[in-house]
């Protein structure tokens, strides 16, 4: 699959929000800064590359695929230690990198790495796939945030307000997105 095909796949049929059910937190409106988005996309591309290569070339040949979560946890702690170092060296940069939804960010990074790693083996595909997966996720979160904002102006029944309407909206987005699947895109982009 070409990089364009991968991008379209992760934007629609394989979107992390709709395929993996990775719902954004309550306070996330999907309107984060461009700097956050750039850091998130770069982190995902890097995580997908590292996890994908470790999974394909270190774990699979030895039959140790089950160890993937342990490897990811260790990489996560490595990234945390690097952030601690950044905090010591440049406190202002650490403020910019800090994210109160870090649990959700970790989950999305791992899902992006797994979704990419199980499909591709070339380093460029892993890098591009990781970046496209998070870009697609951020786009879907923005889309969902806009729908929720619009719904706040509508007379939604009391029992549907809050999380129920978020899940229903995400379900309808998933229904629309899943129409654009891999076979259609492969036909167009090869």
């Amino acid at each position: 699959m070409s990089i364009i095909g991968i991008s379209f796949y992760f934007a629609f049929g394989g979107n992390l929000l709709v395929q993996w059910g990775l719902m954004p937190g309550n306070d996330v409106k999907g309107r984060g800064s461009a700097w956050h988005a750039l850091v998130f996309v770069s982190a995902s591309a890097l995580a997908s590359l590292v996890i994908g290569l470790v999974y394909r070339y270190a774990l699979t040949p030895w039959g140790l695929e089950s160890m993937a979560p342990v490897v990811f946890a260790l990489l996560l702690f490595g990234a945390f230690a690097s952030l601690q170092l950044v905090r010591t060296l440049a406190p202002s940069l650490h403020e910019a990198l800090a994210d109160k939804n870090s649990f959700q960010v970790t989950l999305v990074l791992y899902a992006a790495a797994m979704a990419t790693g199980e499909r591709f083996s070339s380093p460029w595909h892993l890098l591009g796939g990781g970046a496209a997966a998070v870009l697609g996720y951020l786009a879907a979160v923005c889309f969902l945030g806009a729908i929720i904002e619009r719904l706040e102006l509508e007379p939604v029944p009391e029992s549907f307000k809050g999380e129920p309407i978020r899940f229903l909206s995400a379900g309808l987005i998933a229904l629309a997105f899943s129409g654009v699947d891999t076979s259609l895109l492969t036909g167009f982009f090869g």
Partner: peptide, 16 residues
């Protein structure tokens, strides 16, 4: 997945 999200939403509304 779309059905799952819709079912979760409907179940949550029913519980609420």
């Amino acid at each position: 997945p779309a059905g799952a999200l819709i079912l979760i939403g409907l179940t949550a509304a029913a519980f609420k």
